[in-house]
Computed example of a mutant assay.
Amino acid sequence: MKTIQLFFLILIIVSCSSNKKISVNTSKQSLKNQQLIIDTDINTENIIVEEISANTEIRLKKDSITTVNSYITAPVFDSILKPKHDSFNKLLSMFVSKEGFVHYKDLKKRQLDLQKYIFYLGENLPTQNWTKSDILAFWINTYNALTIDLILRHYPVKSIKDIKNPWQQRHWKLGDKWYNLDEIEHQILRKMDEPRLHFAIVCASISCPKLLNEAYTAENLEQQLTNATQDFLSDSTKNSISKDKVELSKIFNWFNADFTKNGSLIDFLNLYSPIEISKTASKSFKDYNWDLNE
Protein backbone atom coordinates (compact mmCIF):
# COMPACT_ATOMS: atom_id res chain seq x y z
CA MET A 1 0.00 0.00 0.00
CA LYS A 2 2.75 2.37 0.92
CA THR A 3 4.45 1.47 -2.34
CA ILE A 4 1.34 2.41 -4.33
CA GLN A 5 1.00 5.72 -2.45
CA LEU A 6 4.64 6.51 -3.07
CA PHE A 7 4.18 5.74 -6.74
CA PHE A 8 1.22 8.14 -7.07
CA LEU A 9 3.09 10.83 -5.15
CA ILE A 10 6.03 10.58 -7.54
CA LEU A 11 3.64 10.68 -10.49
CA ILE A 12 1.96 13.88 -9.21
CA ILE A 13 5.33 15.58 -8.67
CA VAL A 14 6.51 14.68 -12.16
CA SER A 15 3.22 15.85 -13.62
CA CYS A 16 3.42 19.24 -11.88
CA SER A 17 7.01 19.71 -12.96
CA SER A 18 6.09 18.91 -16.56
CA ASN A 19 3.20 21.38 -16.53
CA LYS A 20 5.43 24.08 -15.12
CA LYS A 21 7.96 23.43 -17.86
CA ILE A 22 5.27 23.57 -20.48
CA SER A 23 4.02 26.85 -19.03
CA VAL A 24 7.50 28.32 -19.08
CA ASN A 25 8.07 27.18 -22.63
CA THR A 26 4.74 28.65 -23.64
CA SER A 27 5.72 31.99 -22.08
CA LYS A 28 9.00 31.94 -23.95
CA GLN A 29 7.18 31.22 -27.18
CA SER A 30 4.78 34.09 -26.43
CA LEU A 31 7.71 36.44 -25.89
CA LYS A 32 9.25 35.22 -29.10
CA ASN A 33 6.01 35.87 -30.96
CA GLN A 34 5.76 39.31 -29.36
CA GLN A 35 9.28 40.09 -30.49
CA LEU A 36 8.34 39.07 -34.01
CA ILE A 37 5.37 41.42 -33.91
CA ILE A 38 7.53 44.31 -32.70
CA ASP A 39 10.12 43.64 -35.36
CA THR A 40 7.43 43.54 -38.01
CA ASP A 41 6.09 46.91 -36.83
CA ILE A 42 9.55 48.46 -36.96
CA ASN A 43 10.18 47.15 -40.42
CA THR A 44 6.83 48.44 -41.61
CA GLU A 45 7.61 51.86 -40.19
CA ASN A 46 10.95 51.86 -41.96
CA ILE A 47 9.26 50.96 -45.21
CA ILE A 48 6.86 53.87 -44.80
CA VAL A 49 9.69 56.29 -44.08
CA GLU A 50 11.62 55.05 -47.09
CA GLU A 51 8.58 55.48 -49.29
CA ILE A 52 8.06 59.03 -48.02
CA SER A 53 11.71 59.83 -48.68
CA ALA A 54 11.54 58.42 -52.19
CA ASN A 55 8.38 60.31 -53.09
CA THR A 56 9.75 63.49 -51.56
CA GLU A 57 12.82 63.30 -53.76
CA ILE A 58 10.60 62.92 -56.82
CA ARG A 59 8.51 65.93 -55.82
CA LEU A 60 11.51 68.18 -55.34
CA LYS A 61 13.04 67.20 -58.65
CA LYS A 62 9.79 67.56 -60.57
CA ASP A 63 8.76 70.67 -58.65
CA SER A 64 5.31 69.19 -58.37
CA ILE A 65 2.94 68.07 -55.66
CA THR A 66 1.00 65.60 -57.78
CA THR A 67 2.92 62.57 -56.51
CA VAL A 68 2.18 63.11 -52.82
CA ASN A 69 2.13 59.72 -51.12
CA SER A 70 -0.89 58.80 -49.03
CA TYR A 71 1.38 58.08 -46.08
CA ILE A 72 2.37 61.72 -45.74
CA THR A 73 0.40 63.66 -43.17
CA ALA A 74 -0.17 67.42 -43.37
CA PRO A 75 2.53 68.41 -40.83
CA VAL A 76 5.14 66.33 -42.64
CA PHE A 77 4.01 67.73 -45.97
CA ASP A 78 4.30 71.33 -44.75
CA SER A 79 7.73 70.78 -43.21
CA ILE A 80 9.03 69.34 -46.47
CA LEU A 81 7.66 71.93 -48.87
CA LYS A 82 7.92 75.09 -46.79
CA PRO A 83 11.41 75.61 -45.40
CA LYS A 84 11.94 77.52 -42.20
CA HIS A 85 14.27 80.50 -42.09
CA ASP A 86 15.47 80.02 -38.50
CA SER A 87 19.17 79.76 -39.30
CA PHE A 88 19.09 82.95 -41.40
CA ASN A 89 17.09 84.69 -38.71
CA LYS A 90 19.79 83.79 -36.17
CA LEU A 91 22.59 85.18 -38.34
CA LEU A 92 20.69 88.41 -38.99
CA SER A 93 19.96 88.94 -35.31
CA MET A 94 23.62 88.42 -34.45
CA PHE A 95 25.33 90.48 -37.16
CA VAL A 96 22.82 93.14 -38.29
CA SER A 97 22.05 96.18 -36.15
CA LYS A 98 18.59 97.68 -35.69
CA GLU A 99 19.69 100.44 -38.06
CA GLY A 100 20.42 97.85 -40.77
CA PHE A 101 24.21 97.99 -40.65
CA VAL A 102 25.98 94.68 -41.23
CA HIS A 103 29.05 93.54 -39.29
CA TYR A 104 30.58 91.85 -42.34
CA LYS A 105 33.98 91.32 -40.69
CA ASP A 106 32.47 89.16 -37.95
CA LEU A 107 29.88 87.59 -40.21
CA LYS A 108 32.61 86.41 -42.59
CA LYS A 109 33.69 83.99 -39.87
CA ARG A 110 30.25 82.42 -40.15
CA GLN A 111 30.04 82.46 -43.93
CA LEU A 112 29.79 78.68 -44.03
CA ASP A 113 26.59 78.87 -41.96
CA LEU A 114 25.16 81.33 -44.45
CA GLN A 115 26.10 79.11 -47.37
CA LYS A 116 24.49 76.11 -45.67
CA TYR A 117 21.28 78.14 -45.46
CA ILE A 118 21.54 79.01 -49.16
CA PHE A 119 22.05 75.33 -49.99
CA TYR A 120 19.00 74.52 -47.87
CA LEU A 121 16.95 77.04 -49.88
CA GLY A 122 18.12 75.43 -53.09
CA GLU A 123 16.84 72.07 -51.89
CA ASN A 124 13.41 73.51 -50.98
CA LEU A 125 12.28 75.70 -53.86
CA PRO A 126 8.69 77.01 -53.93
CA THR A 127 6.01 74.79 -55.43
CA GLN A 128 2.58 75.52 -56.87
CA ASN A 129 1.06 74.69 -53.47
CA TRP A 130 2.69 77.67 -51.74
CA THR A 131 0.82 80.87 -50.97
CA LYS A 132 1.97 84.19 -52.37
CA SER A 133 3.23 85.18 -48.93
CA ASP A 134 5.27 81.97 -48.67
CA ILE A 135 6.86 82.60 -52.06
CA LEU A 136 7.56 86.27 -51.43
CA ALA A 137 9.20 85.57 -48.07
CA PHE A 138 11.28 82.81 -49.64
CA TRP A 139 12.64 84.93 -52.49
CA ILE A 140 13.17 88.06 -50.36
CA ASN A 141 15.25 86.04 -47.90
CA THR A 142 17.04 84.35 -50.78
CA TYR A 143 17.90 87.66 -52.44
CA ASN A 144 19.22 89.14 -49.21
CA ALA A 145 21.21 86.02 -48.30
CA LEU A 146 22.83 85.92 -51.74
CA THR A 147 23.67 89.63 -51.56
CA ILE A 148 25.37 89.15 -48.20
CA ASP A 149 27.24 86.12 -49.52
CA LEU A 150 28.39 88.11 -52.56
CA ILE A 151 29.87 90.78 -50.30
CA LEU A 152 31.55 88.19 -48.09
CA ARG A 153 33.12 86.53 -51.15
CA HIS A 154 34.90 89.81 -51.91
CA TYR A 155 35.29 91.29 -48.43
CA PRO A 156 36.92 93.60 -47.54
CA VAL A 157 35.32 95.81 -50.17
CA LYS A 158 34.17 99.43 -49.96
CA SER A 159 31.18 99.14 -52.25
CA ILE A 160 29.19 96.48 -54.04
CA LYS A 161 30.00 98.39 -57.20
CA ASP A 162 33.68 97.53 -56.72
CA ILE A 163 32.70 93.97 -57.60
CA LYS A 164 32.63 93.26 -61.31
CA ASN A 165 29.06 92.80 -62.56
CA PRO A 166 27.73 92.09 -59.05
CA TRP A 167 24.12 91.52 -60.06
CA GLN A 168 24.99 89.20 -62.94
CA GLN A 169 27.29 86.78 -61.12
CA ARG A 170 25.92 83.23 -60.87
CA HIS A 171 27.48 81.78 -57.75
CA TRP A 172 24.39 80.03 -56.41
CA LYS A 173 22.67 76.88 -57.57
CA LEU A 174 19.05 76.61 -56.47
CA GLY A 175 17.47 73.38 -57.57
CA ASP A 176 18.81 72.58 -61.03
CA LYS A 177 19.58 76.17 -61.99
CA TRP A 178 22.30 78.73 -61.33
CA TYR A 179 20.82 82.11 -60.35
CA ASN A 180 22.02 85.69 -60.20
CA LEU A 181 20.56 88.62 -58.29
CA ASP A 182 19.16 90.36 -61.36
CA GLU A 183 17.11 87.34 -62.30
CA ILE A 184 15.60 86.94 -58.84
CA GLU A 185 14.71 90.62 -58.62
CA HIS A 186 13.39 91.28 -62.12
CA GLN A 187 12.13 87.89 -63.30
CA ILE A 188 10.64 86.63 -60.05
CA LEU A 189 10.04 89.24 -57.36
CA ARG A 190 8.94 92.19 -59.48
CA LYS A 191 6.44 90.00 -61.32
CA MET A 192 4.61 89.28 -58.06
CA ASP A 193 2.90 92.68 -58.04
CA GLU A 194 4.17 93.79 -54.63
CA PRO A 195 5.97 97.17 -54.87
CA ARG A 196 6.89 97.15 -51.17
CA LEU A 197 9.43 94.41 -51.87
CA HIS A 198 11.81 97.18 -52.98
CA PHE A 199 12.13 98.17 -49.32
CA ALA A 200 12.76 94.59 -48.21
CA ILE A 201 15.53 93.51 -50.58
CA VAL A 202 18.87 95.22 -50.16
CA CYS A 203 21.92 96.10 -52.26
CA ALA A 204 24.39 96.30 -49.37
CA SER A 205 24.67 100.08 -49.70
CA ILE A 206 24.07 103.10 -47.48
CA SER A 207 21.24 104.47 -49.63
CA CYS A 208 19.47 101.12 -49.81
CA PRO A 209 16.58 100.32 -47.52
CA LYS A 210 17.98 98.93 -44.29
CA LEU A 211 18.50 95.21 -43.98
CA LEU A 212 16.00 93.86 -41.48
CA ASN A 213 17.70 92.07 -38.61
CA GLU A 214 15.23 89.22 -38.83
CA ALA A 215 14.12 86.90 -41.60
CA TYR A 216 10.90 87.52 -43.50
CA THR A 217 8.17 84.97 -42.86
CA ALA A 218 4.83 84.32 -44.50
CA GLU A 219 3.03 84.80 -41.18
CA ASN A 220 4.50 88.26 -40.56
CA LEU A 221 5.10 89.38 -44.14
CA GLU A 222 2.31 91.96 -44.42
CA GLN A 223 3.40 93.80 -41.29
CA GLN A 224 7.10 93.44 -42.14
CA LEU A 225 6.62 94.96 -45.61
CA THR A 226 4.51 97.80 -44.25
CA ASN A 227 7.07 98.57 -41.54
CA ALA A 228 9.95 98.46 -44.02
CA THR A 229 8.15 100.89 -46.35
CA GLN A 230 7.24 103.32 -43.57
CA ASP A 231 10.76 103.20 -42.12
CA PHE A 232 12.30 103.92 -45.50
CA LEU A 233 10.02 106.88 -46.23
CA SER A 234 10.53 108.38 -42.78
CA ASP A 235 14.34 108.18 -43.04
CA SER A 236 15.37 111.74 -43.92
CA THR A 237 18.76 110.56 -45.22
CA LYS A 238 16.96 108.68 -47.98
CA ASN A 239 13.76 110.67 -48.51
CA SER A 240 12.93 114.27 -47.61
CA ILE A 241 9.17 114.72 -47.57
CA SER A 242 6.99 117.77 -47.03
CA LYS A 243 3.50 118.67 -48.19
CA ASP A 244 4.57 120.53 -51.33
CA LYS A 245 8.00 119.08 -52.05
CA VAL A 246 9.56 115.64 -52.01
CA GLU A 247 13.18 114.62 -52.56
CA LEU A 248 13.04 110.89 -53.05
CA SER A 249 15.35 107.94 -53.27
CA LYS A 250 16.26 107.00 -56.83
CA ILE A 251 14.51 103.70 -56.17
CA PHE A 252 11.26 105.55 -56.93
CA ASN A 253 12.73 106.68 -60.24
CA TRP A 254 14.29 103.38 -61.30
CA PHE A 255 11.16 101.37 -60.51
CA ASN A 256 8.48 104.00 -61.11
CA ALA A 257 6.32 101.54 -63.05
CA ASP A 258 6.05 99.28 -60.00
CA PHE A 259 4.70 102.10 -57.83
CA THR A 260 2.19 103.56 -60.32
CA LYS A 261 0.14 100.52 -61.34
CA ASN A 262 -2.81 101.63 -59.21
CA GLY A 263 -2.41 105.40 -59.26
CA SER A 264 0.25 108.08 -59.22
CA LEU A 265 3.54 107.93 -57.32
CA ILE A 266 2.14 110.48 -54.85
CA ASP A 267 -0.85 108.19 -54.27
CA PHE A 268 1.51 105.36 -53.34
CA LEU A 269 3.63 107.57 -51.09
CA ASN A 270 0.60 108.81 -49.20
CA LEU A 271 -0.27 105.26 -48.21
CA TYR A 272 2.86 105.08 -46.06
CA SER A 273 4.22 108.62 -45.67
CA PRO A 274 4.24 110.29 -42.23
CA ILE A 275 3.15 113.51 -43.98
CA GLU A 276 0.21 113.98 -46.37
CA ILE A 277 1.75 115.00 -49.69
CA SER A 278 -0.06 117.31 -52.09
CA LYS A 279 -0.86 115.84 -55.49
CA THR A 280 0.87 118.85 -57.02
CA ALA A 281 4.04 118.53 -54.93
CA SER A 282 7.32 118.95 -56.80
CA LYS A 283 9.52 115.86 -57.09
CA SER A 284 13.26 115.38 -57.33
CA PHE A 285 15.63 112.50 -56.58
CA LYS A 286 18.58 112.30 -54.22
CA ASP A 287 22.06 111.11 -55.12
CA TYR A 288 22.61 107.46 -54.31
CA ASN A 289 25.34 106.49 -51.86
CA TRP A 290 26.80 103.11 -52.86
CA ASP A 291 29.19 102.84 -49.89
CA LEU A 292 28.96 99.52 -48.07
CA ASN A 293 26.31 99.36 -45.34
CA GLU A 294 28.63 98.56 -42.44
Rank of each mutant, 00 (worst) to 15 (best):
T44R: 11
T131E: 08
I42D: 04
A145D: 05
F119C: 02
N144A: 13
P75R: 10
D106I: 04
H154K: 06
Y120F: 14
F77G: 01
I52S: 05
L146K: 02
K62P: 11
L81Q: 00
F77M: 10
W139F: 13
H154T: 06
D134N: 12
V96Q: 04
A54E: 14
I148H: 02
K105V: 14
G122T: 02
N124L: 09
K158F: 13
L125I: 08
V157K: 00
I48D: 14
A145T: 10
F77N: 02
E57P: 00
Y155S: 04
A54T: 13
Y143M: 07
Y155R: 01
K161D: 11
S87V: 10
Y143I: 05
E45M: 12
I80H: 00
A74I: 15
L136H: 05
P83W: 00
F101L: 11
T40W: 00
V49A: 06
D78Y: 06
I52K: 14
V49Y: 11
I135C: 07
E123G: 08
I80F: 02
I148K: 07
I151M: 08
L121E: 00
A74F: 11
D106W: 04
K82Y: 06
I58S: 07
Y104W: 15
E45R: 14
T147D: 05
F138S: 03
I48C: 06
Q115F: 05
S87T: 09
F88S: 07
N141A: 09
E57H: 04
Q115Y: 06
T40P: 07
H103Q: 10
T131M: 05
T142A: 11
F101R: 11
K98N: 10
K108S: 15
E123W: 01
N124W: 02
S133E: 13
K90S: 08
S53C: 04
K61L: 03
E51S: 09
V49K: 11
A74L: 08
L121W: 01
A54K: 15
H154I: 12
I160S: 03
T67K: 06
L121V: 06
R59C: 08
V68F: 04
L152T: 07
I72F: 03
M94W: 09
N89Q: 06
S64E: 07
S93F: 10
P75F: 12
L81N: 01
D78P: 05
N144S: 15
A145H: 06
Y117E: 03
K84T: 14
F77D: 00
K61V: 00
L121H: 00
K161M: 14
H103S: 14
F77H: 03
P75E: 15
R153Q: 03
G100N: 10
T40H: 09
N69S: 08
K116C: 13
K84R: 15
D113E: 15
I58D: 01
L125D: 04
K161N: 13
K105G: 01
D41R: 15
F138M: 07
V68W: 06
Y143H: 10
D86K: 11
S97H: 07
V76Y: 07
L92R: 02
I58G: 01
L114D: 05
K116L: 15
